[in-house]
Design a protein around this nucleic acid. Structure first.
Length: 1056
RNA sequence: GGGCGUAUAGCUCAGCUUGGUUAGAGCGCUUCCCUGAUAAGGAAGAGGUCCCAGGUUCAAGUCCUGGUACGCCCA
């Protein structure tokens, strides 16, 4: 059946409008679904969608990752894989809670509890759904094909139960443990704060800064220096009540010093003058490590410490002690500092904590009982002073974290928390990382490997509301007896009630308790929820509800592990880690093979986009203005995706102009002339080998592009792919089409066939990156002319290199021709001879002349408007000067240290003789330091340079010389060509179609008249004139005459 | 404070893996050319301490060491 012809392709196009039409087409034709159906039986290439946290509106940075999440699935689908794309939403977590608190005007946990957890969590659920809607709109608009109809949601019951199951597996391996954790904590809100919250709440405050004497209790040092005390500095006197030890840096020098008052104190040597004054005296210098073990008298004995063999109230060694502030001796209260806790634990010291969750001291304590921790400072300092232990007390202004909601000063506070013992799986994680392909690869052993190397246990629990409840039920009578529940079904068995339809969130799950036969006590769930990162890290199995949901085992097994995941670099310690950690803990293997790690998108001013700075570019307006394809191209191909990049309107406009519109207009040009000639691809053209050289070149160039783009995308290098495509589009438009225009005007089947084939391949290669524009072209230029073409470019197959279309060496020859052309243009510009003035001949170096071949010489002649291209060598020796210089790259390998002298010898040698010898037998001899050294053609760059009377440009070994001598014929031809240009412009101004024929009457005197008389027939043909008549006087031309005074010609033209 | 990354023209960025002759492109600017698809194209010009300081080497934008600034992550 005969194919129809091309559909018209307008020269001007509104890309955003085009995209909306394509979106409608995809919807109508179910294109995305059909790509999945078509590849249903194909080998899988598994992609995991990292779920965005739906806690706000999508930003432009979200577009970045989503472009990469779309490009490669499209690419792999075209290559014949089934790439399922299940959307996902990260629904739980503090960011969602905070957004809802803000909406409700809350200022902390008491407000939430008063409001009711059930109602609060319902609001969280509702907020998530609202934001998901905005993400879905953006996702569709940008052309990210992902299944948003059946997404996984971390808040769904089946998802929660999968996470429970995973925790059960981890517990069974003994890796889920309860321990203490020091975190910034707001005693008023009763909650620990995340780092993110911490960063928002720093306030400058004045705290007491105290230096306190800790008398040394015994030992050699005391024996030598009676009355000796350690001098300890702190800005949190309230923690002194809990003092458990002191710490010094073992590698720092300390001194026993006598103050002007005769007092003996231990301080760091570097701080002595600052703390004790210049008039203090050093009695003895002691290495920090030699102080370790020294017992001292604690400042307060309000607390009872448990019996222990550990070195309570002695000096410990700690690397984190510095001599920047204070005295170099640090007081340790493990309940109130992460470093302190870690250090004291390593010595087996007990953790004593007299402060309750409300921030007040235990009421039974003397002196400070019932006091709010900060308020106790004053009383404690006064007491120290009264007992003679206070050495100095000065106000200290510093930045201290406060609760961003209620401005209460935060406590670093040890709380019980549940941990996943990832340190126990460190070796497995390192092993899995070794088998993972990172793009860029520096992440693997850099940022990520380093993170694994310094792995600490995963603090899993959160004292919050909107999250996956920690599925641990504890026996009230025996806190060590816990049951980790893996599903609602199991919970139903334990309780004897059908809980299958229970909402597994708080508060409903909190009310579920049970007892066990033969065991005393009721089991009640611990109050915490889990870190939302564990939710998202569980998505490989939880997205299917594995293992509980029917059929989930099949779904899981065929989509595990993923071949591809992609997120921005901040996820190295986020999702990239949680995903690998959860899978490794549960299955002993990672869940992804290739991971692409993107740099961030910055505003045009190079800073992060933020409301505060007012530099936000929202994705929807950006796509409405420039089109999604331009934004996609930017993300994929502008700059290195691995580094931070600045997006702005200028960059997007340039992409539209240089890439998308150039591509579009090339196609529009092709369709214009194909339709005008009534040609369709089914009409065919001559075999490739019989087509002109530019056609063979374009076919070769197209195949090379296929190879380049495929190789780049296989390595996730979108930038390289984009650069290759952009260079090709430029070549296609500005060399192939421009040089071949005349053949298109004439409807030459060879040219039309070649260009059609190239456009078709190019369109497929561009489809993953710019799916909209390519789809439009496919619908208008491929689908209507080929009955076998798939209905969408996205249903077509990825091009593979067709060896039969390659022409060995042709690309190099064409590059040379273009280089020669450039040089010729430069020579013309230098000589100030317009391109329209024909010249007799151009000369090029003999090597170039030989390599070009006859056809390309003709191309160069046409492009430079010269009548002949000749070899400089043939033009005669007297025309040419030679120059020679060394090629360092080649010489360096052979001569090493002697490279410079050999190069100098080449430069000093008789260049003409050297050139002759190299031309004759490929080698020559130069004299280096009195010694003959043989050089070959690779070692020497020979340039030829013509002498007088020529315009010459010489660059990088190539030379072009123009013969500037004009005779009358050349002058007349030049005038004729000027007239052609004037006539063409008049045609255009008259609004004629390119194929309209015209009648011309003209009048000119002098040289232009001569030119037109001599070349009238050619001029007439060129401007499609059926009649070209000279009139005797300009008055004969009538009122419509066009006069070109510069040229000295007047004419009138009308449509024939 | 630690880890990682980045630093090249007024702006946005290539080039660095594998050291080599005069460091490139686009945008913007000046002058000129060309134009029968194009919102285009071409030539020339102005514009560079390739962040700084050492080192390796016949030769360093490229490799090594140290530093500075910025970014990300973590304390």
């Amino acid at each position: 059946m005969a194919a129809q012809g091309y559909r018209p392709v307008p020269a001007h196009v509104d890309l955003p409008q085009l995209e909306r039409e394509v979106l409608a087409l995809w919807k109508d034709e179910r294109t995305f679904e059909r790509t999945l159906e078509a590849s249903a039986d194909a080998p899988r290439w598994t992609f995991y969608e990292g779920p965005p946290t739906a806690n706000g509106v999508p930003g432009t940075h979200h577009v970045e990752a989503r472009v990469f999440k779309d490009v490669f699935p499209r690419f792999k689908t075209m290559q014949g894989h089934l790439v399922e794309r299940k959307a996902g939403w990260d629904c739980h977590g503090l960011p969602v809670e905070i957004a809802v608190e803000k909406e409700l005007g809350f200022s902390g946990k008491p407000d939430i509890e008063a409001f009711g957890i059930a109602e609060f969590n319902a609001r969280c659920r509702e907020a998530v759904q609202r934001n998901v809607g905005q993400f879905e709109q953006m996702t569709e608009r940008m052309g990210y094909w992902v299944d948003t109809d059946s997404p996984y949601r971390t808040m769904d019951s089946s998802y929660v139960q999968s996470v429970w199951w995973a925790l059960g597996q981890i517990h069974a391996k003994g890796l889920l443990v309860e321990s203490h954790r020091v975190a910034p904590y707001c005693p008023r809100c009763g909650t620990a704060l995340s780092d993110h919250e911490l960063a928002q709440g720093y306030e400058t405050v004045v705290d007491p800064s105290v230096y306190v004497r800790f008398p040394v209790a015994s030992g050699d040092l005391l024996a030598r220096h009676a009355g000796l005390a350690l001098l300890v500095w702190t800005t949190t006197p309230w923690t002194l009540v809990s003092n458990t030890a002191c710490a010094v840096n073992p590698d720092v020098a300390y001194v026993v010093a006598r103050t002007a008052d005769g007092e003996l104190l231990v301080v760091a040597e570097a701080l002595r003058e600052r703390v004790l004054g210049e008039d203090s005296e050093v009695l003895e210098t002691v290495a920090g490590r030699d102080l370790v073990g020294t017992p001292y008298v604690r400042p307060f004995d309000l607390l009872t410490f448990p019996e222990t063999d550990a070195p309570v109230h002695t000096v410990l060694a700690a690397d984190f002690v510095t001599t920047e502030d204070g005295s170099g001796v640090v007081h340790e209260a493990p309940a109130f500092g992460a470093d302190d806790l870690e250090l004291c634990r390593s010595y087996g010291l007990p953790v004593v904590n007299p402060i309750g969750p409300d921030g007040t001291f235990d009421a039974s304590l003397p002196l400070v009982g019932g006091a709010f921790f900060k308020k106790a400072d004053e009383v404690l300092v006064a007491d120290l002073d009264a007992r003679g232990l206070l050495f100095r007390h000065v106000p200290y202004e510093h930045s201290y974290p406060h609760c961003w909601r209620c401005h209460t000063p935060l406590m670093y506070y040890a709380q019980p928390a549940w941990y996943v013992r990832t340190t126990a799986a460190k070796d497995a994680l390192m092993r899995e990382n070794a088998d993972t392909n990172w793009f860029p690869e520096t992440i693997q052993w850099g940022r990520y490997g380093d993170w694994l190397e310094n792995n600490v246990d995963w603090a899993l629990s959160r004292n919050r509301y909107w999250g996956t409840p920690l599925p641990i039920w504890r026996n009230e009578d025996d806190p060590s007896d816990v049951v980790v529940v893996e599903s609602l079904a199991q919970l139903s068995e334990l309780t004897g009630r059908d809980l299958a339809d229970l909402d597994p969130h708080r508060p409903f799950i909190d009310e579920v308790t049970f007892t066990r036969d033969g065991v005393a006590g009721t089991y009640r769930r611990v109050p915490e929820v889990i870190d939302a990162w564990f939710d998202s890290g569980s998505m490989p199995f939880a997205q299917w509800g594995y293992p509980h949901a029917p059929g989930s085992d099949v779904e899981f097994e065929r989509a595990f592990p993923a071949q591809y995941i992609c997120e921005a670099i901040d996820q190295t310690r986020g999702w990239f880690y949680s995903l690998m950690a959860v899978s490794t803990l549960v299955f002993d293997r990672s869940s992804y093979e290739n991971v692409v790690c993107l740099g961030h998108i910055l505003a045009e001013d190079g800073r992060k986009m933020s409301k505060h700075l007012g530099n936000i570019l929202l994705p929807m307006p950006l796509m409405d203005e420039h089109g999604a394809d331009a934004v996609r191209w930017f993300m994929a191909a502008s700059g290195s995706p691995w580094s931070a990049r600045r997006i702005g309107h200028t960059a997007l406009q340039e992409i539209v102009r240089k890439v998308l519109l150039t591509y579009w207009n090339t196609v529009a040009f092709h369709v214009l002339y194909a339709r005008s000639a009534g040609w369709t691809p089914s009409d065919g053209g001559p075999p490739l080998a019989e087509r002109p050289v530019l056609d063979r070149w374009l076919a070769d160039r197209t195949q090379a592009l296929v190879g380049d783009v495929t190789a780049a995308l296989e390595r996730f290098e979108t930038q390289r792919a984009g650069a290759a495509i952009a260079a090709f589009v430029d070549d296609l438009s500005n060399w192939y089409v421009r040089r071949s225009r005349r053949r298109f005007w004439a409807g030459d089947p060879a040219a039309l066939t070649t260009l059609h084939e190239s456009i078709e391949v190019l369109t497929r290669l561009m489809a993953p990156m710019v799916p909209f524009t390519t789809e439009r072209i496919w619908q208008d230029v491929v689908r209507p002319v080929d009955d076998t073409a798939p209905d969408s470019v996205h249903l077509s197959s990825w091009p593979v290199v067709d060896g039969s279309q390659l022409s060995e060496g042709l690309d190099a020859s064409v590059s040379l021709a273009r280089r020669v052309t450039e040089l010729g243009r430069a020579a013309r510009a230098e000589a100030k001879v317009r391109t329209r003035q024909p010249l007799r001949r151009a000369l090029v170096g003999s090597g170039a002349w030989a390599r070009l071949g006859e056809e390309l010489r003709a191309e160069v002649c046409a492009e430079l408007n010269v009548q002949a291209l000749e070899s400089l060598g043939d033009a005669g020796g007297d025309l040419v000067d030679h120059s020679a210089k060394g090629n360092f790259r080649a010489l360096g390998k052979k001569h090493g240290k002697r490279t410079p002298v050999v190069a100098a010898a080449i430069a000093e040698a008789d260049a003409a003789a050297l050139a002759a010898a190299l031309a004759a037998d490929g080698r020559a001899v130069v004299v280096v330091e009195g010694e003959d050294v043989e050089v070959d053609a690779d070692d020497v760059i020979v340039a030829e340079r013509p002498r007088e009377g020529w315009s010459v440009v010489n660059d990088q070994g190539e030379t072009v010389a123009l013969d500037l001598d004009l005779d009358d014929d050349l002058v007349r031809a030049g005038h004729a060509r000027e007239a052609v240009r004037a006539l063409q412009e008049a045609r255009k101004n008259a609004g004629l179609e390119v194929s309209d024929r015209i009648v011309v009457r003209w009048h000119a005197t002098g040289p232009v008249g001569e030119g037109l008389r001599a070349h009238g027939a050619e001029v007439a043909e060129e401007v499609l004139a059926t009649s070209f008549e000279e009139v005797a006087s300009p008055d004969d031309l009538g009122a419509d005459a066009v006069t070109d005074d510069d040229l000295g010609v007047a004419f009138v033209l009308v449509r024939a």
